[in-house]
Amino acid sequence: MSAREQILGKIEPLAESKHPGAFQGASEEFDFRASLAVVGARVMTMAELETEFPGRRRYDKTLDGLSLAEIEVLEIDGEFGVAENGAIWLLEEALPHRVAPFICQHLVINVKKIVPHMHAAYEELGKVNSGFGLFLSGPSKTADIEQSLVIGAHGARSLTVVIHA
């Protein structure tokens, strides 16, 4: 017997327990900017961005995964931001490569829309059939050495968000 049949054969159906449906009663009072500050991201205006990162590269389809490693600063467009946790939904279609937001040294994301919380975020996502997507919240970080927070573990060392909403 295959492992599949073995496993499925061993799973006895249990007494039915209903799916509770969508979560009701989520708070709406969240501040996207405040959450970005908590997760270690900076918010800038376009003008400030020009001064800070004049040589940045906008998403360009000709870049492949490995040459991306050479990019200091990458600018991409996020789909929307989540106020409760500062996360920004990124879709594969808006990325030069799936690894792009991780492998660059510094990341800039444009955000045009903000939803209050994760429940609203998944409503917004709906049944998108993209191959890959992620919520990204702040720069790469670790606290694996004595719980001291260090920014820039493996992914981008900084995240700058430009809010166009």
Binding site: V39, A87, M118, F135, S137, K141
Partner: peptide
């Protein structure tokens, strides 16, 4: 887990690239 609002990266793998 850590008192964070969400992990930095929450990746949704749907199809192979």
């Amino acid at each position: 887990a850590t008192g964070q609002l969400i992990t930095t990266y929450t990746s949704h793998f749907h199809k192979p690239r």
